[in-house]
């Protein structure tokens, strides 16, 4: 971006077309990230669910979130190169970083607002608010970008770092996103409705710190910078693409749990007397043979006899005889007879 070289009065400086496009991209990406990210953080809230439905569902929201993230990362790469270009080719220092003068200006302004200091004749100058917003966004892009990429590939991350890193970066990503969104929202509110910072003064700062260079020097610097910048940008894009496509974190379909649904004749590894006791009660055995199988008032014999074998017991249950009904496999599977037998072979309670 060429700096004004004349000392004659200049028209109010405006953002270059490239800077305007950058502003549009950053605004779109930040809004998109906030709208697709914050509902995920507050997924339990009804407003969040409404937004998720509007976004086409949670998986769709996550795809959109990643799209805006890539947009912002691409913009960040471009911005770094553009800053480098202005610095290296034109000698313009980046002026959007808040300096000591800006912090002093902030403190002084608060003092004046509260009446602690006498207000000057000039209207208040809030252009430090723009710088503060830039700082919040810059910090957000760095923190959210790094943590977001780590979350994008959690397996790669835990190959290099401890597993606990994932919940930590997830928490930081979520908390810092909220911090960034809220801070930018409040600052924008002030900038748009109250403060109207004079961008011209920031441009003036930029022009004031510029090192004057001849056109030949500028052209020579440009010739050196552009190939290097293109190579760096290409490397960054390739690295990004490789990283983002390197991992398949999870399988697409969770494997079904396999189970044999209809299996009436499964034999247990061993009989369980506790189950046998319940079966004795529920299969009406006690009705004839007594509650402890000691023989019942209806003439059912005792089954706690040392001479009673499992084979005889089994045959009697299956075939039945006299008043003793036969029990089918459906009513009393073989496995259950094993439990009953285990109970019968326990000492009486």
């Amino acid at each position: 971006m060429a700096a004004p070289t004349s000392t004659e009065p200049q028209p109010a400086p405006r953002l270059s077309p490239a800077q305007r496009i950058e502003r549009l991209v950053v605004t779109t990406a930040l809004l998109g990230l906030a709208l697709t990210g914050l509902p995920q953080r507050f997924a339990g809230e009804s407003w969040a669910r409404t937004l998720i439905v509007l976004g086409g569902g949670i998986e769709s929201m996550r795809i959109l979130h990643r799209f805006f993230a890539i947009l912002l990362i691409a913009e960040a790469i471009y911005h770094v190169l553009a800053l480098g270009y202005r610095q290296f080719v034109y000698g313009q220092r980046p002026v959007m970083f808040p300096g000591i003068r800006d912090w002093r200006s902030l403190v002084m302004q608060i003092g004046e607002n509260l009446g602690l200091k006498r207000a000057g004749d000039t209207p208040p100058n809030y252009h430090f608010a723009l710088k503060l917003e830039y700082l919040v966004i810059l910090l957000g892009v760095i923190v959210l970008g790094v943590t977001g990429l780590m979350l994008w590939n959690p397996i790669d991350t835990t190959t290099l770092l401890p597993g606990e890193t994932i919940p930590v970066v997830h928490s930081v990503h979520s908390d810092h996103a909220l911090f960034t969104a809220a801070a930018v929202f409040l600052l924008r509110l002030g900038i748009v409705f109250l403060w109207r910072p004079r961008r011209a003064e920031i441009f003036a700062e930029s022009a004031g710190e510029q090192v004057p260079l001849s056109p030949a020097q500028t052209a020579a610097r440009r010739r050196r910078f552009l190939p290097a910048a293109l190579a760096l940008a290409g490397a960054a894009v390739v690295a990004l693409v490789l990283f983002l496509t390197s991992e398949q974190t999870a399988i697409d379909t969770v494997p079904r749990q396999r189970a044999v649904i209809f299996a009436p004749q499964v034999m247990p590894e061993s009989g369980d007397p506790n189950i046998g006791a319940v079966l004795w009660e529920t299969m009406r055995c006690a009705f004839c043979h007594g509650p402890q199988a000691e023989g019942g008032p209806r003439g059912g014999p005792s089954l706690r006899r040392p001479d009673l074998t499992f084979e005889a017991f089994y045959r009697q249950v299956r075939v039945g005889r006299g008043d003793m009904p036969a029990f089918t496999h459906e009513e009393l599977p073989d496995g259950y007879l094993t439990h009953l037998w285990a109970w019968l072979n326990q000492p009486e309670a």
Partner: peptide, 12 residues
Amino acid sequence: LTCGRCHGAIFE
């Protein structure tokens, strides 16, 4: 135990 009569494998 009732369900287990048909769903023996799952009951186990």
